[in-house]
Design a binder for these strands. Structure first.
Lengths: 131, 131
DNA sequence: TTAGTTGCAAAAGGTTTGCCGTTTT
DNA sequence: AAAACGGCAAACCTTTTGCAACTAA
């Protein structure tokens, strides 16, 4: 399941994920990588996404009820913000922490996921223009 | 899409959700409701879940990368905790809040989702017995 | 009676897999 | 040349839908 060879498809997918400033859907990866390698198929995208994940180069960003997105793995613990209007997902580098105290006796908190929803800067600016 | 008639299937599904102390998967609803109405089909479960949601009687609990669960709608803002071992989901009635300050200028936070993961009381107790 | 609901089976939408020809090493 | 990889189409899994039969009101 790990990737052993650097094919044109692999490089294209890696490049696309590296240059995107945000987590991408498999379909978005296909669209963008197809510009570089026009014969690229969705199956190849999925296989490489899995391989890149096995190689620890990317992580999947899972938002409740939505299809998985993928981003180049970063060192730091972070969360995500999704704009309700353009649906794009952004990184958030702050974390409240201290959730252990939320649970009753006997429960142990080992990890957490926080997702913020709202309006991004761009969509807010656009709305200001045409109200 | 709203529900107009109280069929045996509808009552069974509502009962099952009301008596469950935790959010249920569609499959779990089917299994439990089948005890009451043995001919129940999955399609009926999904249709009633949609109807109950349209009628504002239940809400879906969406955990990243997992199939939707459903719970009777409660008045209060709350979050969820999932046990990594038994995979059951529990309600958490605390919320840190104050996430507005997390985002840069121009972004507005309108809502959020917090999911805790760890070990539940039962699984912890079981492990203690046979270490 | 009759419109809403059910069950079944087929369809949809996203992801995975088998097969075999192609490419990397 | 060998092993890995890519493309295609079929398979999968969960959820949705079309349709004829059923049932609550």
């Amino acid at each position: 399941m790990t990737i052993e060879r650097k094919t044109r498809q692999y490089e294209a997918i890696r490049t696309v994920l590296t240059e995107a400033k945000r987590p991408l859907l498999a379909q978005e990866v296909l669209s963008l990588a197809s510009v570089i390698v026009p014969t690229m198929s969705l199956a190849t995208v999925y296989r490489n996404l899995k391989g890149l994940q096995a190689n620890n180069l990317i992580t999947s960003v899972l938002l409740p009820g939505q299809n998985p997105r993928y981003e180049i793995k970063t060192h730091t613990h972070h969360h995500h913000f999704q704009c309700r209007y353009c649906e794009q997902v952004f990184e958030v580098n702050l974390c409240p922490g201290g959730f252990e105290s939320f649970m009753p006796e006997g429960f142990t908190v080992e990890d957490h996921e926080l997702i913020l929803y709202g309006e991004c800067k761009e969509c807010s600016a656009q709305k200001a223009k045409k109200p």
